[in-house]
């Protein structure tokens, strides 16, 4: 029974990490919003706000639409949360310690990010309603555009490691973090990360301009679950970004897991700030920038980090 217990323990660990991260991001978002708006930052109400939203969601009834795809509506949030968990499993927490370390960790993570577009499309398509479908198509355009820059930005981090394993990618940063070695990588990754979690300036599929987009027909717990799944995905993106670019668990004095938390928190703080400091980008502008600017920059990044290693 030992393997089964291991699996249960790993699942609990991933769920715990994601829950803590999602809560931190929700609170940080509230703090950033208050700071940017110039409101006084009152700690207790800001900490209580996510719980209040959850309680409200639990007390709100669900809605339905005409001829929805019931299975799709149920599966989409679970799929998104599952993808976040899949990415989180790969995260190295301390030297040599990750819940799973497949040889192809990089490809597994990329596949998880690629499936985000399936989850969002499913979520927007399944209610059989106009605004969610618009959101789904928007994310189709966004997601197909960010795939290549994402893959190239991550690929550059695999070069110094000479491996596709995430654990090896972190180990290769013992002397020099990738953020220094390939300075273009992290900005590209962060832009793509905002798009992966459809957050802040790149919240195109679920934006307020579409009355909530793919979530427009959701209410109550279903809506809350989708939000939690999205926050989890952002946490996973930030955690793996910290591992791939900021040296993961490397750092002076403090123990490794603390550094992982600090660096992940740093990236999450940047995301929370972007939500309130940057205006929403028009979709055609993002698509244009992704193909015309981000792809060449990401290629340049690969070449530069390759030249660095010669």
């Amino acid at each position: 029974m030992s393997p089964l217990l291991d699996v249960i323990a790993a699942a609990a660990a991933v769920a715990g990490l994601l829950a803590v991260g999602a809560l931190a991001l929700a609170i940080g978002d509230g703090v950033a919003g208050a700071a940017v708006a110039g409101r006084p930052i009152r700690v207790l109400p800001l900490i209580a706000a996510p719980f209040a939203r959850a309680a409200l969601a639990a007390r709100t009834g669900s809605t339905t639409t005409e001829r929805p795809d019931g299975a799709g509506r149920a599966v989409a949030p679970a799929l998104l949360a599952g993808l976040a968990a899949l990415a989180m499993v790969l995260l190295p927490l301390a030297p040599g310690v990750a819940l799973a370390d497949p040889d192809t960790g990089f490809v597994v993570y990329s596949a998880a990010v690629a499936f985000v577009m399936i989850a969002v499309f499913l979520h927007g398509w399944s209610p059989n309603s106009t605004l969610p479908l618009h959101g789904a198509y928007r994310f189709g355009a966004v997601a197909l555009s960010f795939q290549i820059p994402f893959l190239l930005a991550m690929l550059a981090t695999a070069l110094p490691a000479q491996s596709l394993s995430i654990v090896r990618i972190v180990e290769a940063q013992a002397s020099l973090w990738n953020v220094v070695r390939e300075p273009l990588g992290l900005p590209i990754y962060l832009v793509v990360g905002l798009a992966v979690g459809f957050w802040g300036p790149l919240n195109l599929p679920d934006g307020d301009d579409l009355a909530g987009g793919t979530s427009a027909e959701d209410a109550g717990l279903a809506r809350w679950l989708w939000q939690v799944a999205r926050l989890s995905m952002l946490v996973a993106v930030a955690a793996l970004g910290a591992a791939a670019f900021l040296g993961g668990y490397f750092g002076p004095i403090l123990p490794g897991p603390v550094w992982v938390a600090v660096k992940t928190g740093l990236l999450l703080a940047a995301m929370a700030a972007a939500q309130h400091l940057l205006a929403r980008v028009r979709i055609e502008r993002f698509v244009g920038v992704a193909w015309v600017l981000l792809v060449p920059l990401a290629l340049l990044n690969v070449f530069v980090s390759g030249a660095f290693l010669l």
Binding site: V107, S110, A111, M117
Partner: peptide, 8 residues
């Protein structure tokens, strides 16, 4: 990974 994009 490839099929996700292709399906969309």
């Amino acid at each position: 990974l490839m099929m996700a994009g292709e399906m969309l």
